[in-house]
Design a protein around this nucleic acid. Structure first.
Length: 442
DNA sequence: TCTGGGGTCCTAGGACCC
DNA sequence: TCTGGGGTCCTAGGACCC
């Protein structure tokens, strides 16, 4: 926590809906709901007019229609939202080099790095008011709520206190009296599950949270969350404003109007998602080693399966092959509601720099071999995993897998060329192969 | 017609290495 | 016959955020 209120949080009001109302005057003053409009859609943003009918984010759209049948239901125009967001972020960066976007419509700004002559409460208040006007200008009429305080926690909570179009500055030294009477759920990071655990130990307000020992919080919530909340309950927060975060994963997912059972269709959908995800990877000049599929079944249970390649890829084929194999581990016979493909373990990978020569572009077959190798590494841990696999064990109980997939045997082998222990895949009738014995490794 | 899509972080257990 | 400890990587699931 700082001595002066130098962390600012901006939050654009009902952002998606507000952009729609800005661009379509007929929607102004009327309930607008942006989100999924299909049978399984949920609300992303409701305008304040729609909120008056009890419509809110994350509510199923079907329920929103029941509550507010006269609202305009829109799917969303993300280009327009991104454009407005970019204008705001640019404005913020002109104020301070330390701007941390949290999403399209939210950011922290470190005013201590802004070079303001005066950081008194009065001065930062008028600064905040001016910022709101400039947000209104650069976005063509959108409003934002601003909170300013001595920490991220306080700035974020403050911006929420007077929505929409609010401005709240929390004077240094008054943080705890602000927090104490509030419900614990105002603290970012306390969601329904944590709130319920706290409720069970009799904690509802921040004041009650403050009375719990650190050891007890760690017992109830785990090491990281427990220690973190022990401090936040005391308004003890020294988290810095981080301007650049590196992307850790890229994913695509889709919920279908009806549950899918046909395995060929599921494979085709995975192929398409693999193509989408790798296109985004290539656009971002990245590649990744770990491929994860996400499957939500008819009963809403969600299952992830992942496998890690020996080297990063941005190839649709490689990701698709792995994804298809991974879904084989999941019983989809009851129907699939959602399918997703993601890539993590990302590496910067600038194709043009690395592969100036056309010959040096990775051979797709080698990539496939790498995918097979990753599957073998996985299968050796999970004997049941590889369909049709033949597993043998050495004296140490370690398993070695003979996997037969589409005319290719993938196994831990040695060859005269590769030496012992290399994980590779070969065609099954290659006479140069003999099973690799783990002893050879010693 | 209950329950989106894109992320981040944490936990826990097993494998493996030294 | 009994049996370490720390560190890292990988996988699965869950909580949370907007």
């Amino acid at each position: 926590m700082r001595a002066e209120a130098t962390i600012l949080h901006v939050d654009l009001d009902a952002f998606f809906a507000a952009v729609e109302q800005r661009d379509k005057p007929s929607l102004r003053g009327k309930p607008v709901v942006v989100g999924g409009v299909g049978g399984r859609g949920v609300v992303a943003t409701a305008s304040y007019e729609a909120r008056a009918f009890g419509v809110h984010s994350a509510m199923p759209t079907a329920e929103a229609r029941r509550r507010c049948p006269n609202a305009a239901f829109l799917t969303g125009r993300f280009h327009a939202y991104r454009e407005a967001s970019t204008a705001v972020m640019k404005l913020l960066r002109s104020i301070s080099p330390l701007v941390e976007p949290l999403s399209l419509d939210e950011a922290f700004v470190d005013l201590a790095a802004a070079g303001l002559p005066d950081l008194s409460v009065t001065a930062v208040s008028s600064f905040g008011a001016e910022l709101k006007e400039r947000v209104h200008e650069v976005t063509g009429g959108l409003t934002g709520s601003v909170g300013i305080g001595t920490s991220k926690l306080i700035a974020k909570i403050a911006s929420d206190l007077d929505k929409p179009n609010g401005l709240v500055v929390v004077a240094p030294g008054t943080e705890q009296e602000l927090l104490r009477p509030m419900q614990v759920t105002v603290i970012p990071g306390i969601g329904p599950a944590t709130a319920e655990r706290l409720r069970r130990i009799g904690v509802h307000t921040v004041e009650e949270l403050e009375a719990i020992s650190e050891a007890e919080l760690v017992r109830v919530l785990g090491q990281s969350h427990g220690k973190g909340l022990f401090r936040l309950a005391r308004a003890d927060d020294d988290r810095v404003v981080v301007p650049e975060r590196e992307t850790k994963s890229v994913s695509v997912e889709s919920t279908y109007e009806t549950d899918h059972v046909d395995k060929r269709l599921l494979d085709a959908l995975l192929d398409r998602q693999a193509a989408q995800v790798t296109e985004r990877l290539r656009n971002a000049r990245m590649s990744g080693r770990t491929v994860t599929i996400k499957v939500r079944l008819h009963d809403f249970s969600t299952h992830n399966r992942s496998a890690t390649l020996p080297a990063p890829t941005d190839e649709a084929r490689t990701v698709a092959r792995l994804a298809r194999r991974l879904i084989g581990d999941i019983d989809t016979s009851g129907g699939v509601r959602l399918l997703g493909v993601g890539v993590s373990g990302l590496a910067d990978w600038i194709q043009d720099d690395l592969f100036t020569d056309e010959e040096e572009v990775p051979d797709p077959d080698e990539q496939d071999a790498a995918a097979d190798a990753a599957l073998v590494a996985n299968a050796s841990r999970r004997r049941d995993w590889w369909p049709g696999a033949d597993v043998e064990h050495d004296a140490h109980g370690r398993g070695w897998v003979w996997g037969s997939g589409r005319g290719v045997v993938t196994v831990r082998f040695e060859t005269a060329e590769t030496g012992p222990g290399r994980v590779l895949s070969f065609s099954s009738d290659d006479p140069a192969l003999r099973p690799f014995s783990p002893r050879d490794e010693e």
